[in-house]
Design a protein around this nucleic acid. Structure first.
Lengths: 322, 322
DNA sequence: GACCATTAGGACACGATCTGACCTAATGGG
DNA sequence: CCCATTAGGTCAGATCGTGTCCTAATGGTC
């Protein structure tokens, strides 16, 4: 009665998202309108493109099914927190090509997340393994979401940056795009003080802050942000070539190794090899190989071999002592 | 013009969820109504509880900020896929107390996920490390979501179950609740053939299928599903006690170990100890300890010590060969 | 087969609501 | 100071939504 039609439609949408059948009578009770109006509302939703499936007969009812477009998701508190925590935990090591969308979704969610839920998210998140790039470079999820919002909103971004040799600087930028390379995050931005394009490693960024000042997007000289990043990476030669052989079928190994690490090529029935290039996360790679749970050998690089040897010795000490 | 008011409100809500400022003029253009109507719509949203912040002056505009309640999330395709993949990946090892909500959110999302996106999700998900309970027991995310839907919709659930000694059986149940114990998933359900309550390990379930037949919820004899599970677990005595000492500050270790594994207690400036009980995931625990990246020793149980020793020897071989 | 539940939708009348076109006021930035 | 923005009042007319009647069709159960 007092609630108007649009509000009722939203409420109806949220009810229908519960995975169960709703008889018209129950809906009309909940919404406080007549059955006829409920039918009309369902019609309206259908016209809007949300496919409401109806089953006739006794214990029939309405139910929202998969359609062409995704309806607005109506989440309860716990579900929202679960998604936020899940995305934060996964933000660093998500599937290739999906991490940017993941951060965008997180930014969208956190933009409207009530503060009480925000507190719960950060408490729970503290209980999880922190977001590390593999070699201990920790990225706060807030950093990523603030940056993603600034990119989307075309707002200038101010932050502190620790350059490669460790000297701290302050930057004022026009953020262009956030790019992830499997394990590391980069910001491609126009540096206003230096009057040129730069790429920044996100794990070296501190206290990012959207100034609120809008800017008109510039044309990136190379065209694509990912390609621009690849070029500037290429100059720095950040990759190691590595090679490891496993005494197990390729499928077995593939299932236990993240895809961006490379695809195992079969060397026979019970043996396969991965050769690929990887960033400088040699420490982390050793542990990852150990978790495959089969015999293996490492060929290159020397650093990795050395690291595996050390880890083996450490484990032997751990078991021998006491 | 042709779109009616509720549709326009939903559209407006989706526009405002982009993290940027929207001037009234642009909104009125996009929505195809007059500026005055946009103002009125904004008013309506505010009355519905969605806090729309407005900034005056040139380049001011509207923006949706965090309020008391969570507005319906309007996601684009990529964001939806990112969330689905993220939740699937995290469903097995989510933070304690959040996994059930996480699965619920996933079920809600997948219920309305268009089929083209569903395909993308499963492709991408295949590229990720599969969902394992730590000791190789793999759970398909579909299994969890089908079960969650059946629980929520009070529909009977039919599935194949591999009992402890490996014999396959078929079950017809009234699913009551899905419970996660940090690393393993259980379904508490009323088994119709056996006419009694049972708990099922989800990793032993195959081909779950909601029959569509509704049922009236029964009273669980013990009251709480989690408590019921705990009792039937207690009988089976599934836990090992373990103890490990690290040559690093407690904070350092805490940051590199999942919280459910236990909290490190400081033993001095540069040393700490974790003692806790854990399921039967000894193989996996050894790798996890190795990833802490500091010297450590393992005291108990004997299986874990043995496992660490083996892993050390394997790594030494891996580095020595070639 | 009969019966009962459900969804589906037409017709109509009354009232509520929505919209656009005018106003004026207030505010922030350059 | 000027220009952009948001904010809101008022009014007339059209539009829309609602509840109360109908009737039809369908699926399950006894």
């Amino acid at each position: 009665m007092t609630t108007d039609t649009p509000a009722r439609l939203l409420q109806l949408l949220s009810l229908l998202q519960t995975p169960r059948e709703w008889p018209g009578g129950e809906l009309s009770d909940r919404l406080g309108v007549s059955r006829r109006t409920v039918r009309r509302d369902i019609d309206r939703l259908r016209e809007l493109g949300y496919p409401v499936q109806a089953s006739k007969g006794s214990d029939g009812g309405y139910r929202l099914v998969a359609g062409k477009a995704l309806p607005p998701l109506v989440l309860d508190d716990e579900e929202a927190v679960a998604i936020a925590v899940g995305l934060r935990a996964g933000a660093g090591h998500a599937v290739e090509g999906l991490d940017e969308a993941s951060v965008r979704a997180l930014a969208k969610l956190e933009q409207v997340l009530p503060s009480r839920l925000r507190r719960r998210v950060s408490t729970l998140q503290a209980a999880t393994t922190p977001l590390t790039s593999g070699d201990g470079a920790v990225i706060a999820p807030e950093t990523l979401t603030v940056m993603a919002s600034a990119v989307a909103g075309q707002e200038r971004l101010r932050f502190a940056y620790r350059s490669k040799d460790g000297t701290p600087t302050k930057r004022l930028t026009e953020p262009h795009r956030l790019v992830s390379t499997g394990r590391r995050w980069y910001l491609v931005a126009y540096d206003l003080d230096r009057a040129d394009w730069r790429t920044f490693r996100v794990d070296r960024v501190a206290d990012p802050f959207a100034t609120g000042a809008r800017f008109a997007p510039r044309e990136l000289p190379t065209g694509d942000a990912a390609e621009y990043l690849r070029r500037s990476m290429y100059v720095r030669q950040e990759a190691y070539e590595f090679e490891a052989t496993f005494a197990a079928p390729a499928a077995y190994v593939a299932a236990r190794v993240p895809a961006w690490l490379g695809t195992p090529e079969p060397l026979g029935e019970d043996s396969c090899r991965i050769r690929s290039s990887v960033g400088d996360a040699v420490e982390w790679l050793a542990v990852r190989l150990a978790s495959v749970d089969c015999e293996f050998t490492v060929q290159e690089p020397a650093e990795l071999v050395q690291r595996v040897r050390e880890l083996g010795a450490r484990l032997s000490r751990a078991a021998a002592d006491n």
